[in-house]
Computed example of a mutant assay.
Amino acid sequence: METEKRKSKGILKEIREWTISLGIAVIAALLFQNYVYAQSEVQNVSMQNTLIAGQRLIEDKWSYRFHEPQHGDIVIINGPESELRLIKRVVGIPGDVIDIQSGEVYLNGVKIDEQYVKGRTFAGSVPIPFTVEEGQLFVMGDNREHSMDSRALGPISRSSIEGKAVLRIWPLPKFGALKE
């Protein structure tokens, strides 16, 4: 009888320890995904040929806490500018002047080399040339003829940037870091 009580207490103690350990692991995983790295899926064609619908990415939510987005970064946008989460490329940062002439983008008066772009770039409803103000970014999709971006939505608030797409994990043949 005494032995059965010890066994019963031992089993309950082990169950409690496992429950606490699993609970801590689940909480740590959720915190990690919400604040450090997360998985995202490309939903549309606005970033072709760089990213294609159905591809899965790893999003870095952490590094923009220490530095600002840079030209060429591929960012995930989740804010009031659009009902959808968007994936776009940073073209302009605060202080930049964006101009579009003859299907080409000029940054501060200099034509930028955008080898990743598909199609020609046309101005949208935002008056061009456009000066990016503090706390804003000017973003565009790589598939310029089929992208809902800053040309139509206007500048994106820095606070709407959820993170930076850093790694393509699916499909496996395309696995690797995302480059500018």
Rank of each mutant, 00 (worst) to 15 (best):
K13C: 10
G103I: 11
L137R: 05
D96W: 06
S40V: 14
G92V: 04
V132D: 05
I87C: 02
L167T: 13
R120M: 10
Q39E: 15
E81P: 00
L30E: 10
F130L: 10
Q55S: 09
S147M: 03
D113S: 14
Q136L: 04
R158C: 00
H67N: 13
S150H: 03
D142C: 01
D96L: 03
G10I: 09
I98F: 08
R168W: 01
I98G: 06
E162I: 00
M47V: 01
S125V: 11
K13I: 14
V91H: 05
P171Q: 04
I11L: 12
L86A: 02
S82D: 14
L12G: 15
Q70H: 11
F122I: 09
E134I: 07
D113Q: 15
M148R: 13
K111A: 14
E14W: 14
E180P: 09
T3L: 15
F32S: 07
E4F: 10
Q55H: 12
L167F: 11
V117G: 02
G135V: 08
I161S: 10
T50V: 15
Y106W: 13
Q39K: 11
I87F: 03
W62S: 04
Q43F: 11
V105S: 04
G79Y: 05
G109W: 11
V166P: 00
S157E: 11
I112K: 05
G119M: 06
G119I: 13
K5Q: 08
S8M: 11
A25G: 14
P80M: 07
M1Q: 09
E17G: 10
A28K: 08
E180Y: 11
P173H: 06
K174N: 05
S147Y: 02
Q101S: 07
S40T: 15
D99P: 00
I74G: 01
P94T: 01
Q136F: 08
E133W: 03
H146M: 06
E83K: 15
L172E: 08
F66G: 05
D73I: 04
E68S: 15
I128M: 14
Y106P: 04
K5I: 13
F175L: 12
R56G: 07
I76H: 09
H71L: 07
G154E: 07
G154R: 05
L172V: 15
Y37M: 14
I112M: 15
I112F: 06
K179H: 10
P171I: 01
L153Q: 12
M148Q: 10
A29M: 10
A38R: 13
A53I: 03
R65P: 01
A25N: 08
L30P: 00
V97F: 01
L31E: 03
V117K: 11
S46N: 03
N34W: 13
Q101H: 08
N44E: 09
P127F: 03
G95F: 04
R85A: 12
L57K: 10
L167E: 04
I98P: 07
V26G: 05
P127D: 08
I112P: 01
S150M: 03
Y64V: 08
I76S: 13
I156R: 02
P69Y: 09
D96H: 05
M148D: 00
Y64F: 11
K61P: 00
V42G: 09
Y37Q: 02
N143L: 07
Y37N: 00
K7F: 11
E59P: 00
R85K: 10
V36A: 12
I11Q: 03
M140G: 07
A177M: 11
